Computed example of a mutant assay.
Amino acid sequence: MVDKSEKFNWLVRTGFAARGITYLLLGYIALSTRGDAKGGGSAVYDYIQEVPFGTPILWVMTIGLLAYVAFRLMCAISDLQHRGTDPTGIMKRIGDAASAVAHMFLAYACFQFATGEKRSSEGDSSGQEMAGSILQMEIGWIVIIVVGIGFLVGAFMQAKTGFTAHFMHRISSRAPNIAKPIGRAGHFARAVVFLLIGWSMVRGAWAEKEERVVGLGEAILSLRDTGLIFTLVAIGLIMFGIFSLFTARYRIIPDFGPEGLKPHFRA
């Protein structure tokens, strides 16, 4: 019989793998088209949709991304990774929440392609659609600003993590040595993208205009006129995708103890 810990383990690893495939293809498409892809992040799922067994793959990725979202939300809310309640720990948990929101956008777009509701020719508007729905609420603009600030904090934490390589503390020693430099480059690239998303959310909410809010793919495409920066970010995202696949294999997954959400890490 498979216990809760093993199910949780597989869900988290599937989530990291889905994240890896998304970032790997996102960086590859951006780099190969030099920013001419109209669909932005959605071009990834349109690309998968056209390969053999594309729709089942999209469904698996949707489930995987949702599992990753749940994992990050648990990290933010219940302190699943024991980050603590000091200022540094709170900032890391805010970064976890921002990551959950970013990947919720990706999961939503992936779901639309899995069900055949959307193609890349319709544009990468998932983030704008969700932002528009939230802005219709009475305090929606406040929610968007708070989430935007979360992305800005997440950008800072991604850059800090890239510099310190602290992410290796949760990677098994059996992982290839190349995982560390690849992970560093990937985190720096992700910091740039989170910065762009966060700023767009704060600016869009302040003006109450959802069209100013950008998703992951749109944030990358906004750099296409920057030349070298665009190329470096695209390469960095490819590396982050590769690192995510390493993580899916070598991540030290927290094991649930008798108390539930508080885990005991496996050696």
Score class of each variant (00 low, 15 high):
S133Q: 12
A97V: 01
Y108I: 08
T115F: 05
G64H: 09
M104W: 11
G123K: 06
L80G: 04
D124C: 08
G84P: 14
S42G: 08
Q128Y: 02
M137A: 12
A131K: 05
I142M: 15
D96C: 11
T62L: 03
G132V: 05
Y68W: 10
G95R: 01
Q112V: 03
K92C: 09
R72D: 00
I63D: 01
K118W: 14
G40S: 07
D79H: 12
G123P: 01
G40E: 04
V153W: 03
Q112C: 11
Q81K: 14
S120F: 10
I77G: 05
V101W: 01
R83F: 15
G123S: 05
I145C: 14
D46A: 08
E122D: 14
V69P: 00
I48M: 07
G140R: 08
C75Y: 05
P56H: 07
V44I: 11
F113L: 07
G123I: 07
F71C: 01
W141A: 15
A76L: 04
K118Y: 09
E122S: 06
G54L: 13
E129Q: 14
Q81R: 13
I63K: 00
M74Y: 07
G132I: 04
G150H: 03
R72V: 00
G64C: 07
S78I: 11
G84M: 09
M137C: 04
H103N: 09
G140L: 05
L65E: 07
D79Y: 06
M130H: 01
